[in-house]
């Protein structure tokens, strides 16, 4: 066996776990899901191939409304996370030094040492009617009776932003870290104010990180199940809730699969749109951040 063949074999062997993972856990289930989603149930045990499931989803206003609402809320959560994470990341990357820097970074990571369920319960303890905030307000005499902070869109938003912070901070810190301080100084030296330097120098430099962070956070929010359901309550109308109920409650896998594919298509479409609008490519975003 020549050396070249040996090298190729090594390469294939090293690659095979990854290929297996992609094939078994991503490609095959998706093909199967797709087959399911285009299978229409005509009568018990009689099926026909067609787009009937999809048509049914889109002809039901509550599903369309939920999809729209989920997308808008996810975009809003992404924007809010970016707004909050940018100053934090800038501080960590450019202003903090030495030990403070790693301590701050660790603090962003800390919430992820407990499971998402525990994190969401934490928020519920704070926000519920008999929770910490409500009791405090009553104790301080600011409100007369208990206040319910849970089960509304704001609570869902808080939960989504909290869960997503880290995934925005990490790519932002890594791009901002590579920003040469003298560029910022040159920006000031040539007459720019703080806002001009931010807009013309810092943000264009951080763009790959911003886009990468936004994609991750958007996908996470759109596909999140626990946070919207627990913090938003039964009426939260999150698209993943429908998928869950079709598969688990109603055993209507064909319909659930169609839901899944609609969600996948929506997120792909929105990410593609965002990339087009920001003038970035997926490749440059991943390479730089």
């Amino acid at each position: 066996m020549s050396q070249k063949d040996a090298r190729r074999l090594t390469f294939l062997l090293l690659l095979s776990p990854f290929l297996l993972w992609i094939l078994l856990l991503v490609v095959i289930p998706h093909i199967d899901m797709f087959m399911l989603s285009v299978r229409e149930k005509i009568e018990p045990r009689v099926y026909e191939t067609g787009l009937g499931n999809y048509i049914e989803v889109f002809s039901e206003p509550v599903y369309v409304h939920t999809l729209f609402r989920t997308a808008v809320m996810s975009v809003a959560a992404t924007a809010l996370t970016l707004l909050l994470a940018f100053p934090v990341s800038y501080y960590i990357a450019k202003l903090a030094r030495g030990r403070l820097k790693s301590a701050l970074f660790l603090m962003c990571l800390l919430p992820f040492w407990v499971s998402e369920l525990v994190r969401v319960f934490g928020w519920m303890i704070l926000l519920r009617e008999t929770g910490v905030i409500s009791s405090f307000l009553q104790w301080a005499g600011l409100v007369s009776g208990p206040v319910e902070f849970l089960y509304n869109d704001a609570a869902v938003m808080v939960g989504l932003v909290y869960t997503s912070m880290l995934f925005m901070v990490v790519p932002l810190v890594s791009t901002l870290d590579s920003l040469d301080e003298s560029l910022v100084e040159a920006g000031y030296d040539l007459g720019g104010g703080g806002f001009a330097v931010l807009r013309e120098i810092v943000i264009p430099h951080a763009m790959p990180g911003i886009v990468a962070g936004c994609i991750i956070v958007f996908m996470l929010s759109l596909g999140n199940y626990l946070t919207p359901i627990l913090l938003g309550g039964k009426s939260s109308l999150w698209f993943t809730g429908h998928i869950y109920s079709q598969f688990i409650t109603r055993f209507n896998w064909e319909f659930g699969a169609a839901f899944g594919f609609i969600l996948l298509a929506t997120s792909s479409l929105l990410v593609w749109l965002a990339l087009r609008l920001s003038g970035q490519t997926l490749a440059s975003t991943i390479a730089k951040s």
């Binding site: 100084e185 000031y188 030296d189």
Partner: peptide, 27 residues
């Protein structure tokens, strides 16, 4: 610094890589 009537050519130049040459000069 942004109001001082002095300008500085930095040790490593600090040209803005996100802009073209003309945009750099126009900044």
């Amino acid at each position: 610094p942004n109001r001082r009537p002095v300008n500085m050519v930095f040790q490593h130049l600090a040209l803005f890589p996100m802009m073209t040459v003309a945009e750099n000069i126009a900044y």
